[in-house]
Design a protein around this nucleic acid. Structure first.
Lengths: 253, 253
DNA sequence: TAGTGGTCTAGACCACATC
DNA sequence: ATGTGGTCTAGACCACTAC
């Protein structure tokens, strides 16, 4: 290639570049392989580095590439399927659910959370932070909000070490009647980004869950998943997790 | 502001800009209001236009802004909650599900779809295109793949006009045993982008569903939702749709 | 210290919507 | 014709990683 189609492409360079790179990734690279650096790639394609970067950004968004400052750009493995949907309604923190509890504080919830819980805006709630690790990689961080009213029997002898387990234990004594969930696109806060080993602003899938008990919202959680590496799975008869393992070129012409 | 904190910000300009703008949107702008153009905004903040755009892009990703070429940048309304989860398992196209059938062709499915369906890679499948409209806005496009084996009684007298309804009618005669779903981030193909009234590459939430009947995958669909305007909702005891209506500042700052 | 990706600039031109 | 956002360039410097 080089001097073809001078007339009327009407397609942005970065878009064309993206499809070219996407095809090259399928045919000429292995997962984990490192690409030439951005300056070389840009020169090779005869475009400005910014334009090349626009293509790389999209490919990273689609989970095809992984870029790390000071290291380089590598070919990403297929996205992990992480189960989010109802697994026969269970409370958070039950047995082996691949979550790791990090800690817990009692603090006033943000307005949006207070609205979810149906509590007053200034009420303090137990806030449990958890992390989800799969295949040795941090894929999600979560904040679980539990109003004191949901755990009335909670001990008053709380230390940083036993706070979170105590809250979860009390929560498990309730009868879980149902759950609500929503998924939307967001961008990682500075704090979340650090825990997910990404830069601030990285795209994330925000999963908001409400847990119902006794006709009320007994707890709510906001979980932040890495959008580049995760595919969230739901559903009752799940086996979608094990398939999907060749490639996924739903988009990219 | 103006000449404060010369020492050690260590925070990218666009990131700081984003939070400033985000706050301004909450306090000084109404939904639908049009912002000053990018050149003016950049000048006002004393940054290059590219930097300003980096901030705007993030805010658009988070659903706070809407930008249209030739028109301007406006403040976006809160995201719509669109139900995706199981509503007591029903087949696609049942009664009022806010989907509109556009057409149907018989064609060989992409490899990824063939893998989902468990059919051979070269088998032709019925491909029904549908659109989802909410509040007068296109929020999703979908391709529903139905292998001929799932609709054996399908008439052989098919016209472009009756193809899609006939396939759906036959599908509804089967007993739906369960569904599978996964959600991941993608970017709009040129075709999808046009139907969603977005530019190619716009962020979308890709919902892949498998429908089970008689122990097999009877159909599969890939639905593409606008990530900027949609919040996907799941769950059995749903009322999450009507709340959430103040703001959602889970991230930012 | 060298090499990588991340940020930023100050321009230019293009595609599109509107009047 | 005008004004908007979208694309693109050719630089520069910074933050981080690894050697």
């Amino acid at each position: 290639m080089g001097t073809t189609q001078l007339e009327s492409v009407q397609e942005p360079k970065y878009w064309h570049l993206k499809t070219v790179l996407n095809d090259a990734l399928d045919s000429e690279f292995e997962v984990g392989e490192i690409l030439p650096n951005e300056r070389d790639l840009a020169a090779r394609f005869g475009v400005a580095r910014a334009t090349l970067r626009q293509a790389l950004e999209q490919l990273e968004l689609e989970g095809r590439l992984q870029r790390r400052r000071g290291v380089g750009t590598t070919v990403a493995p297929p996205r992990m399927g992480v189960r989010v949907g109802p697994v026969a309604n269970t409370w958070p923190g039950s047995t082996l659910d691949s979550w790791k509890t990090v800690g817990c504080v009692e603090a006033v919830a943000p307005h949006a959370i207070a609205a979810l819980l149906g509590t007053g805006s200034d009420a303090a709630v137990h806030t449990v932070r958890r992390e989800r690790v799969m295949r040795g990689q941090h894929v999600a961080t979560e904040l679980l909000y539990v109003p004191p009213a949901s755990v009335p029997e909670l001990s008053t002898m709380l230390t940083p070490a036993n706070h979170a387990p105590a809250v979860l234990r009390e929560l498990h004594t309730l009868e879980l009647e149902g759950e609500d969930r929503s998924v939307e696109l967001g961008s990682a806060s500075a704090e979340d980004a650090k825990q997910l080993d990404r830069l601030p602003g990285a795209p994330v899938l925000v999963v908001t869950t409400r847990y119902f008990s006794a006709g009320r919202v007994a707890a709510a959680s906001v979980a932040t998943y890495r959008a580049d590496t995760c595919r969230l799975t739901f559903g009752d008869s799940g086996a979608l997790e094990v398939t999907h393992h060749e490639e996924e070129s739903r988009q990219a012409s």
